[in-house]
């Protein structure tokens, strides 16, 4: 009979685990006062590990600010290019929002929701100084990009447009591996969002340069769980408040201002609702 008892206990435990609370994100964040944010730790300067082994970056600062406006405690969770969508897609979501230099795309919007655009970027190529005289040269070069991003798709399409029907584009596992490939000479150029390229180029100043124009627009949005408009509003309002009281510019200048390591002029203004 003891076997029966144990079985019953195990079954009960399983049931208890499965009926765990799974309410909408907004209610949960407001009641627990904890907001979980998925952030990359490889994307300089959006989220990375600095010299003191601290996890810092533009996205980290933005997430901290958003959490502050929501009066909640921030809990950072590591995501990468492969997990950043699925972590908000699950039910209940593994994280409440994702700030991981993620471009707002319509395909992605089918699976998750996005906030208003909080950063404007575009894709470019980075190569050794003087290696690329003309943009057309890129067509027959070995190009590195990242697996699990749209950068690799864009880069392949762009090279095809330049006239190479069978371009050599390798998808590396993350920013670090991609930049390493360029530095060691595995590939002649790498391509992804220009700010990340700047961030890595600044590691070895003077050796690399951006080439060509933007090949695509990359508006970054905060990834949010699908169909939770109260939560989406809260995040949108928080972002607009951050812009309104000047905090956005402060954070922006810290990472991308003229005196920073990765200067990148602010060209657009985020969407504002009166």
């Amino acid at each position: 009979m003891r076997v029966l008892k144990i079985t019953a206990m195990a079954a009960l435990l399983l049931m208890a685990a499965s009926v765990a609370f799974a309410g909408p994100t907004y209610d949960r964040v407001m009641s627990t006062k904890v907001v979980k944010a998925g952030i990359s730790n490889q994307g300089i300067p959006f989220g990375f590990i600095d010299d003191k082994n601290e996890w810092v970056g533009f996205d980290v600062d933005m997430a901290t600010e958003i959490a502050k406006r929501l009066d909640a405690k921030l809990e950072k969770v590591v995501v990468n290019n492969n997990t950043r969508i699925s972590f908000v897609q699950t039910n209940p979501p593994k994280v409440d929002m994702v700030l991981s230099n993620m471009t707002h795309k319509r395909v992605r919007d089918e699976k998750i929701d996005f906030s208003i655009t909080y950063f404007f970027d575009g894709q470019k190529f980075l190569a050794k100084k003087g290696a690329v005289k003309d943009v057309k040269d890129l067509a027959n070069m070995k190009i590195g990009s990242m697996q699990g991003t749209t950068s690799i798709v864009n880069a392949t399409a762009y090279l095809k447009e330049l006239g190479n029907p069978n371009p050599k584009v390798t998808g590396y596992d993350g920013e670090v591996a991609m930049f390493e490939a360029l530095r060691s000479g595995r590939v002649q150029a790498i391509s992804t969002d220009s700010t990340i390229l700047l961030g890595y180029a600044a590691k070895v100043p003077g050796q690399f340069e951006l080439v060509g124009d933007f090949i695509s627009d990359e508006p970054y949005g905060v990834g949010l769980p699908q169909d939770d408009s109260a939560w989406r509003d809260a995040v949108n309002f928080a972002i607009q408040d951050i812009w309104n009281d000047g905090t956005y510019l402060k954070i922006y200048d810290k990472w991308f201002g003229p005196d920073s390591k990765y200067p990148f002029p602010l060209t657009s203004k985020i969407e504002m609702w009166p």
Partner: peptide, 17 residues
Amino acid sequence: GVTELFWSMQEVLSLTY
């Protein structure tokens, strides 16, 4: 960065979710 089966799986994962 070798495009073997596991890599393909991750690529499918992140392109189609």
